[in-house]
Design a protein around this nucleic acid. Structure first.
Length: 574
RNA sequence: CGGGGCGUAGCGCAGUCUGGUUAGCGCACCUGCCUUGGGAGCAGGGGGUCGGAGGUUCGAAUCCUCUCGCCCCGACCA
């Protein structure tokens, strides 16, 4: 491709809107342009990289036995009502009416559509197992789109759905997807980690997320320093203490102290000269099972997903001021467990400690010398806090957790019969009995993968594409387009690569060398072939590797061979 | 949804507080000259309903009211 005629417009300056590196570079390299918040157009160069990811995904999905389909972006409300998600999904589901007034949504995911399709086609166990996937644009009306295409509202996703006759088959499909994902992200040249994840409202026995390691990642992962265990903070387990009984207390009773305007854990710790871990944080929640109090140590953070699970409730929300006041008889900031008349659940991190400081349920007062075993009626003790760096690993019990950040690229999980049940997707087994299909679903954020890759692979000059991700592995750069000799050589190389179907960019613009060098670095082409009058006098051209910045001088006649060799070494078949 | 910030040429910004010629600068773009190994230089040029609507005023980018959009922090969401 000749750059002079390419729809490629690079920017010298960082666009104001962009915060993270990948977003800045994707805009500067002319890959994307913003249309609206969280909505982007892909320009030729950006699309070309996107296609590289898609190609790898297709190859590996097909190899694993999945078959490609293409489902509609617009989905009728009826199917969502059938699965129960029309009311449940919330504002992220963009809804609208057609001219007849019928309700539709723009698909944020496709469980309903695929389940509907499969239930209409699959009759017998002979039709199973099945794994269907698609690569398609999805829309989720995110409250706060961020980081360019990393958290966009409109984005491109590969989603696959598996259908099996039994649990064993479902498990097999799950593992097939896991290994496919490992291969996909490895081939993309990404540093990633598969971590245990929460299954969310979807349920099922387990799920894994594939995280690209990046400091700017929104997800927090806890990873054992000794063994393989790694999990999303939402899920990361904490070692259970030997006993879930609160530490024995001496006789006595809590002592009320005056603490004017002292509310937060930090303020209380400073004011009363105690450590944060000697304070009990009391959080009041409104749930579908009533108002409850959750207790965690002052230095710990509550984990609402764990809390929800421990309580067995569906909805959970920090209580508002009015609810807090009616439950504790005190304004926010002074809640404490002593004398509370609502259900109290305590984190197991509290069992070995005492005495504690807590709120006194009275304005400007706290209690000292509180023993949970003596002074508080606890209904349950469970793991309801976030794991943190330094915690003992729950698996090997030798290593400790370190905290890393990641960008969620892929998610595999078992759906079980959630959708087949609500939407009645069944088959007849060998004995003629009707059975529910066991499902799984597996997503990869394609557009997000491109951004994650750039987040990992760049330097001060721009993007550094691995050869596997480069739509054009080579860029031919004549220093002076007015020099006949230079242009003849450059053109010969360009045509030579073209004849072999090796994609290359030809920077034939009448620009000064510096401009072309900067652009070449910015868009991240792995190999730059520079043709200038100086080296040409020796019959040579230069090849510079983007990653290492090492320049090598080679004979102008051996360039094609060199390129072929590079591709072979990197196992790229074009 | 709460808090903060910003909308002036394709991009980045000044001008707004304190109203007053033809609204300015850098980059990008067009023409010419010159130059050609890391975003050169000179000369000339095109491009703006100052986010939108309404109002105040002799006069509004500037003041007032409403509104839309975008960004950041938080909440929310899986």
């Amino acid at each position: 491709m000749k750059i002079s005629s390419m729809f490629l417009h690079t920017l010298k300056e960082d666009p104001k809107d962009a915060e993270v590196t990948s977003h800045k570079l994707m805009l500067r390299a002319g890959m994307i342009r913003k249309v609206s918040s969280g909505i982007y157009s892909y320009l030729p160069y950006g699309l070309a990289i996107l296609r590289k990811v898609e190609a790898i995904v297709r190859e590996e999905m097909n190899k694993s036995g999945a078959q490609e389909v293409l489902l509609p972006g617009v989905q009728p409300a009826e199917l969502w009502e059938e699965s129960g998600r029309w009311d449940f999904y919330g504002k992220e589901l963009l809804r609208f009416k057609d001219r007849k007034g019928a309700q539709f949504a723009i698909g944020p995911t496709h469980e309903e559509i695929i389940t509907d399709l499969v239930r209409n086609e699959v009759r017998s166990y002979r039709d199973l197992p099945l794994n269907l996937y698609q690569i398609q644009t999805k829309f989720r009306d995110e409250m706060r789109p961020r980081f360019g295409v990393i958290r966009a509202r409109e984005f491109i996703m590969k989603d696959a759905y598996s259908f099996d006759v039994d649990e064993k088959g479902a498990e097999k499909n799950y593992h097939a997807m896991q290994t496919a994902y490992e291969r996909i992200f490895t081939r993309c040249g990404l540093k990633f980690k598969a971590v245990e994840a929460d299954t969310g409202t979807i349920g099922g026995s387990f799920s894994h997320e594939f995280m690209a390691l990046a400091d700017t990642g929104e997800d927090v992962i806890l990873s054992c320093t000794k063994c393989q265990y790694a999990a999303n903070i939402e899920k990361a387990e904490i070692v259970r203490p030997d006993s879930l009984k609160m530490a024995d207390a001496p006789s006595g009773k809590p002592e009320k102290v005056h603490t004017p305007q002292v509310k937060t854990v930090e303020e209380v710790a400073n004011f009363l000269k105690v450590r944060p871990q000697d304070i009990v944080k009391t959080l009041i929640y409104t749930t579908d099972a009533g108002v409850i109090a959750a207790l965690v140590r002052g230095d710990h953070e509550i984990n609402e997903i764990k809390l929800k699970k421990a309580l067995g409730c569906d909805t959970l929300e920090l209580a508002d001021e009015t609810t807090i006041e009616s439950a504790t008889k005190a304004p926010r900031g002074f809640a404490g467990p002593v004398g509370l008349n609502i259900k109290i659940i305590a984190d197991m991190g509290l069992v070995t400690n005492g005495p504690f400081v807590s709120g006194a349920n009275e304005l400007n007062h706290h209690l000292k010398n509180v023993w949970l075993s003596r002074d508080v009626k606890i209904s349950a003790i469970d793991d309801i806090r976030n794991a943190e760096a330094g915690d003992l690993c729950p698996r090997c019990k030798q290593g400790t957790f370190e905290m890393i950040h990641g960008i969620e690229l892929g998610h595999v999980f078992k759906l079980g019969t959630k959708y087949s049940k609500s939407m009645n997707a069944t088959f007849l087994d060998e004995t003629g009995k009707q059975q529910l299909i066991i499902m799984g679903c597996y997503g990869i954020g394609i557009s997000r993968t491109v951004a994650a890759l750039i987040e990992q692979c760049h330097d001060d000059d721009g993007i550094i594409l691995p050869v596997s991700m480069a739509p054009y592995p080579f860029l031919i750069l004549p220093i002076d387009v007015k020099s006949q000799e230079v242009m003849d050589t450059a053109t010969a190389i360009y045509e030579g690569l073209k004849a072999l179907n090796i994609p290359a960019l030809f920077d034939d613009r009448d620009e000064r060398p510096g401009v072309k060098f900067k652009d070449a670095d910015l868009i991240g082409v792995p190999y730059r072939i520079t043709i200038g009058p100086k080296t040409l006098k020796e019959g040579a051209v230069e090849i510079r590797e983007r990653t290492t910045k090492v320049t090598e001088k080679i004979s102008k006649d051996s360039v094609i061979e060199y390129c072929k060799k590079v591709l072979k070494e990197k196992h790229i078949n074009l």
